[in-house]
């Protein structure tokens, strides 16, 4: 029998390729490579531990997680705090569930939420406009190769674009929101899995971003976006359940049975 190529690692590689433009722009505009290296070392170490202790195959998706953490984590945290945050996020967010593909929340989202709540004194990073705009080719590559859910990005575009047109989202928030959308929200594993739920999931992320921008005083754009991403991905199973119930009900109405 012949075999296709959509294994877990192919998807991870394509996701990595999709994030290529974003990573290049970030490095070009002075991204802290040292943080990327630190994140890679810490995640790699934990993957090794889980491989030896529980026979969990490591995944290249760790590179995506490391990139997201390096780009979005608060600045000047120091090695110890950052390592602590990454350890918590990667172990509790991904590895204890069985590795990439079985996790419920994106490990980078957990890391960033942990760092944001644990060390609120440190400043969140901002993005130069070219880095923010690099999210567009990233999303395009992801959608064309099919590794990023089109519905999530579409839903976020509809709601976020509408809000931007009415002036509810200024440019810094829009840029941070776009980068977080590509890095954390449009993850094939932790976003919703059914098409209608994906649109709602993306729309919910953008709506939360608008809500936080209007009501959360003193929060940085990236902080708001990460919080919105965390809540949107926690809502994903509920949205899926609702979409499935609708699908089954429609089918039952059409065929008289399930």
């Amino acid at each position: 029998m012949t075999k296709g190529l959509w294994t877990r690692e192919t998807v991870a590689l394509l996701l990595l390729a999709a994030h290529g433009p974003l990573a290049l722009m970030w490095v070009w505009y002075g991204g802290a490579l040292s943080r990327l290296v630190l994140a890679l070392v810490v995640i790699g170490g934990w993957q090794l531990v889980f491989m030896l202790a529980r026979a969990q195959a490591p995944s290249l998706a760790a590179l995506v997680t490391a990139l997201a953490i390096a780009m979005l984590a608060p600045q000047d945290l120091g090695v110890l705090r950052l390592s602590l945050g990454i350890t918590f996020g990667v172990v509790m967010g991904e590895l204890v569930f069985g590795g990439w593909g079985r996790n419920v929340v994106h490990p980078a989202t957990v890391t960033l939420a942990f760092l944001g709540f644990g060390f609120p004194a440190f400043a969140w990073p901002g993005f130069d406009a070219p880095v923010g705009w690099a999210a567009i080719p990233a999303a395009l590559i992801g959608c064309v190769t099919g590794v990023m859910p089109v519905g999530v990005i579409g839903g976020a575009l509809v709601v976020g674009g509408g809000a931007a047109l009415t002036g509810a989202l200024p440019e810094p928030v829009l840029l941070a929101g776009g980068v977080v959308l590509v890095l954390l929200v449009a993850d094939p594993v932790t976003s919703a899995a059914t098409t209608p739920a994906r649109w709602v999931n993306g729309g919910l992320y953008a709506a939360l971003l608008v809500l936080f921008h209007s009501g959360w005083d003193g929060a940085a754009p990236v902080q708001m976006a990460v919080a919105a991403a965390l809540l949107a991905s926690l809502a994903a199973p509920l949205l899926d359940e609702a979409a499935l119930a609708l699908w089954v009900a429609r089918r039952r109405r059409r065929h008289g049975q399930s």
């Binding site: 959509w6 877990r8 690692e9 590795g99 593909g101 979409a243």
Partner: peptide, 26 residues
């Protein structure tokens, strides 16, 4: 040994998987 782990690598939802079922079901 990793390939023969009791739980294999999980399936990642992609557009390819949806099309493999003709988009007839989630």
């Amino acid at each position: 040994a990793l390939g023969h782990a009791p739980r294999g690598t999980p399936v990642i939802p992609t557009a390819a998987l949806t099309q493999a079922f003709g988009a007839a079901l989630p």
